[in-house]
Amino acid sequence: MSQKITSYQGREITPDEVKEGKYLDIVYKFEPKYSWAAGVAISRFLTELKDGKIVARKCYKCERILVPPRMYCEQCYRPTDEWVQVKDTGTVNTFSISHVGTDARRLKTPILVAVVDIDGASPGMGILHNLGEVERSKISVGMKVQAVWKGSEERQGAITDIRYFKPI
């Protein structure tokens, strides 16, 4: 704020005032529901997950193998050309130990999170997933990991068909 300005505006509501109900808040809850189309690439990706496989798309121009797959290459700006099955193993690009959930509330058991660069795809092609069967202090960047799948009858064609990645 400029030193020329001596008063500044704003009326703070303190946490105590909220608790006391000093102000007349208006509360609304709503829950809009969506059905998102997965599109050509992700529909196939999900179907393959149900079969216990990870698939990618290859662009013949830049020769990158892309995970998650997309039907166009955003760098070459042309359609991608071929489905490629990649491995269910990979390397931890980076990881975190999350003590909070989606709504920022504290979790009893922390979630282990990682970007896993998938073997068989181009370097740096990572996906977001969880880590499991590992002690927190043993996780490191560069660690080799493998997908732990749900049983075939449990799989529904979702990213959670992979329970987590574990060290190998």
């Binding site: 509360v27 609304y28 809850k29 829950e31 809009p32 969506y34 189309a37």
Partner: peptide, 16 residues
């Protein structure tokens, strides 16, 4: 063609 169904539940406390 797959669809993914979920919601985005929201709760607002508006000041007047």
């Amino acid at each position: 063609a797959r669809h993914w169904t979920d919601s985005i539940p929201l709760e607002f406390h508006y000041t007047a």
